[in-house]
């Protein structure tokens, strides 16, 4: 093996700055995409459980569509194809004037894709609540909306904290696909450092360590959420 080690390169100008800026993009893209994914995913997931064929059908179609096309293809469709398919004025705006096009496109593509996965978790959470509880809430006089608002949603969101944590982590990992449309996020920056310095090992190690750090922070935060929201007297957690 013939390799020139140089860990110091990671702390030299401009490479340290590249890593920091890459981390910044990775975190900001991921957080924005997660907000999109969470809001739309929750709506679609709830939509799949309602007693209306049209709504639940449309929501199921959404999930199937976004889940069965690779994220990279979706990203390219949003970035390259959609601006050509919309009316000229809008297309022109998307290509020329939309602020931070790579960032915005990634947030939309990653957000809508992840929404389909969040929706599945939300639906599974709601479905896992015993039917009798829903009946009891209705018998108690709650309306359909109130049953969702006060009973089904609060319980199912507590149930699905662990799978949502894993989806949240996946968003950070999937944000690396943004490099294919030219967003210099963390993975792209480490690749660029590798290209400039030939110190690939150091560059990829730096990115790997940062991703692990992100995973640890997210897992830690979500564990706090899990303990805080645990229902006393259930599954041995809480008071």
């Amino acid at each position: 093996m013939n390799y020139n080690w140089n860990w110091a390169v990671l702390f030299q100008d401009p490479y340290l700055g590249w890593l920091i800026s890459g981390l910044g993009w990775t975190v900001s893209v991921s957080l924005c995409a997660w907000v999109v994914a969470f809001v739309i995913g929750a709506l679609i997931g709830v939509g799949r459980t309602v007693n209306n064929r049209l709504i639940s059908g449309l929501c199921t179609a959404y999930v199937e569509l976004f889940r069965n096309v690779p994220l990279l293809v979706q990203l390219f469709v949003w970035y390259f194809a959609i601006p050509e398919m919309v009316p000229d004025g809008v297309g022109h705006w998307m290509k020329r004037e939309m602020p931070m096009p790579e960032f915005t496109t990634t947030v939309i593509a990653l957000g809508l894709y992840t929404a389909s996965r969040v929706a599945e978790q939300v639906r599974a959470g709601i479905d896992s609540i015993p039917k009798g509880l829903k009946a009891a809430a209705k018998a108690n006089g709650l309306s359909g909306t109130q049953v969702y608002r006060y009973i089904l949603l609060p319980i199912s969101f507590r149930i699905i904290v662990p799978p949502l944590t894993s989806e949240f982590l996946t968003v950070f990992k999937n944000s690396s696909l943004a490099l294919t449309i030219g967003l210099l996020e963390l993975t792209a920056q480490s690749q660029q450092i590798a290209d400039y310095t030939y110190n690939s090992f150091e560059a990829f190690t730096a990115a790997t360590v940062i991703y692990i750090f992100i995973a640890l922070v997210v897992t830690g935060l979500m564990q706090i959420v899990e303990t805080r929201t645990a229902i006393p007297g259930q599954s041995g957690k809480g008071a």
């Binding site: 009798g132 509880l133 009891a136 809430a137 108690n140 319980i155």
Partner: peptide, 11 residues
């Protein structure tokens, strides 16, 4: 209405 499995709101 009272149910066989109580169906209290667990949260």
């Amino acid at each position: 209405m009272v149910f066989q499995h109580f169906e209290l709101y667990p949260h």
